[in-house]
C-alpha cells in the first residue's frame, strides 16, 4: 500500500497543497509589501517633533494593535458591505486586513528603531553641516534600518502564520485546504501534520535569518 493509498490522497491533492501554499505566500507577501511601505511612512510620521503630527498615526495604529486580526478581517469582509457600498472579494479583503494590521505593527517597530539611534548621532550629523533631512537620510535612517530588519522579519513570520485566518472567509489557503482534506480523508492528524510542516518549512529559515542578522547588524554604540 503506497502512502497515497494509505492517506486517501491523490497526486492531484499534492498539487493542491502546492497551490494552497502559493495562495498563502501570495496573500502574505503582497500584504507585507503594502503593510511595510505604509508602516514605514506611519513610523516616520510618528517621529515628528511636532506632538500633534506625531500622534496622528496613532488613530490607525492603536485600534489595529489592540484588536484581533480575525475581527479586523470580518469587519472588512462582512461588516463594510452593511454600512457602505464597499463590497470586497475575499482576496482584496484579506490583503487589506493583513496589510493594515502589518502596517500598525511595522509603524511601531520603525518608530522604535529610529528612536533607538542615540541623540549623539543626530548632533554629529548636524555638527558636520548636514540639515535635519540629510542627517536623517545619511545617518539615522541607515542605522535604524539595520536595527529594524531582524524585528521586521520576526513580524513577517508571525503575519505569515496569521494569514491562516483567511481560511475563515473561504480562501483556499493551506489551512482551508487542510480542513477540506481532513474532512474527506478523515485523517486530520496526518493532514494537519502536512500543513504544519509546510508552515514550518516556510517560517523556520526566516527565524534563523532573523537571529543571525540580529547579531550581525546590531551596533554597540
Amino acid at each position: 500500500m503506497s502512502f497515497y493509498d494509505y492517506a486517501n490522497l491523490t497526486g492531484n491533492d499534492a498539487m493542491q497543497f502546492l497551490r494552497a501554499a502559493g495562495v498563502t505566500l501570495y496573500i502574505t507577501i503582497v500584504s507585507l509589501l503594502i503593510g511595510s511601505i505604509l508602516g514605514i511612512a506611519l513610523g516616520i510620521v510618528r517621529c515628528s517633533k511636532n506632538k500633534a503630527v506625531s500622534a496622528l498615526p496613532l488613530i490607525l495604529i492603536e485600534p489595529l494593535r489592540n484588536s484581533p486580526l480575525v475581527t479586523q478581517l470580518f469587519l472588512i469582509y462582512y461588516g463594510l458591505p452593511m454600512v457602505s457600498s464597499i463590497m470586497l472579494d475575499p482576496y482584496p479583503a484579506a490583503i487589506l486586513a493583513i496589510s493594515l494590521n502589518t502596517a500598525a505593527f511595522m509603524a511601531v517597530l520603525v518608530h522604535n528603531s529610529i528612536s533607538a539611534v542615540p541623540q549623539g548621532q543626530w548632533e554629529a550629523g548636524l555638527a558636520l553641516g548636514h540639515s535635519s533631512a540629510s542627517t536623517f537620510i545619511h545617518v539615522i535612517a541607515r542605522q535604524a534600518f539595520r536595527l529594524l530588519i531582524p524585528q521586521a522579519i520576526t513580524l513577517y513570520i508571525s503575519q505569515l502564520q496569521c494569514s491562516s485566518l483567511v481560511a475563515l472567509i473561504g480562501i483556499m489557503d493551506l489551512t482551508k485546504l487542510g480542513q477540506n482534506l481532513a474532512l474527506r480523508t478523515l485523517k486530520p492528524f496526518m493532514i494537519y501534520g502536512i500543513v504544519f510542516l509546510i508552515y514550518y518549512i516556510l517560517s523556520s529559515p526566516l527565524s534563523k535569518l532573523a537571529r543571525d542578522l540580529e547579531k550581525k547588524l546590531s551596533f554597540n554604540y
Binding site: G120, A124, A127, G129, Q143
Partner: peptide, 27 residues
Amino acid sequence: CGMVFQRTVLFPHLNVMQNLTMSPVKL
C-alpha cells in the same frame, strides 16, 4: 566651526574612510 564631542560619535554603519568622506561627498 567643526565640532568634536566628549563621547565619540563616529557613524557606526560606516567604516573609517566612509566616516571621513560621507559628508564632503554628500554635502
